[in-house]
Structure formats: structure tokens, C-alpha cells
Amino acid sequence: MNCSDIENLLPRYHEDELDADDRRRVDSHVADCVNCRESLAFFAALETSLSERRALRPAATRTAARVIGRLGLRQRSFVLRSLFNAPGLASVTLIVVGVFLLLIKNPFVELPAVLSRMGDWFSLGLSPKLASWLNEIAQVSGDGEWMLIGLYLGVFALIMLMGSWMVLRFVRD
């Protein structure tokens, strides 16, 4: 092998990319050839210089912070993240409905009365259409006890369902 053949192998020497035979050829050649020995030293130094340029790379955390800032993304707390999605909002709505129903001590008697009272408030000129709709519901709920029991059970089941979904989401995150 002449110097030109050896020179072609040298860039691979320091990356351990030469097979055993080529490596032996290089070793025996550079032992006797000053020029190729200097070339080998050059490639060793080049390897170091190229690796040291990593210091020029900006910190990845800094890039991430700037990009997130420019995009206006903010990490919301778990509570907000759980609430600000469709199932979260549905859960909250159902909980509010459930609490409203539970606050009425005797729904079979009081719910129609409450709805009727609300209908009266709206009939004071604010929204006659809503008032008549509420009065209609009051009439129906006053007549149908089983409908209310079904409503209770449905609401309870949905609250449980959404609650378990939120717990699962929390565990996953």
C-alpha cells in the first residue's frame, strides 16, 4: 500500500471503522512513514476539534423555553387541565346539576314547586317563553316520580363515570 491508499483509510482510523487487516496495514505503514504519521495525528486532532464544537450548540432547555414562550403555550395545573376538556366540563356540569337536585330535600314535592317558582320569576316579563317551558316541566315532574328517580340514577352514574375518567387521567399524567 502506498501513501495515497493509506491516506484514504486514515479518517476512519479514529472512528474504529477499519477492519483488523486495514488497521494493521495503517499501523505498520505509519511506523515507517513520517508524512502519514503526521496525517494520522491531523485526523486525531480534527476529531477532537469537531467534537469540541458541541459547546457552540445552544442549550436545548433554552431553545424549548423560547419556543414555548413564542407559541404562548403554558403548562396549566392539573385541575385546570382536567376541567378544560369536554369530559371535564361535562363532569362539572353534571356535578352542579346533581348538587342542585340534592339540595332540594323532597324533590317529588319541591322540584315542581321550584321550577314553577322559577317560571313565575321569568313570567315577570323577562322571558315569557322560558317561563311557560319551566311551568310545563314542573307539571311533568310533578306527575312523574319515576322519571325523577331515573334522572337521579342517571346523573349519579354519569358523575361516577366522569370521576373515574378524571382519576385515570391523573394517574396517567
Partner: peptide, 14 residues
């Protein structure tokens, strides 16, 4: 919308 997940992607591929 998980910002931490995107942050990890940036740090991985930066």
C-alpha cells in the same frame, strides 16, 4: 396541548 410533552420533543431533536 401538553406543553411538557412538546418540550421533551424539542429537547430530543434540538
Amino acid at each position: 396541548g401538553n406543553e411538557k410533552a412538546f418540550r421533551e420533543l424539542i429537547e430530543r431533536y434540538q
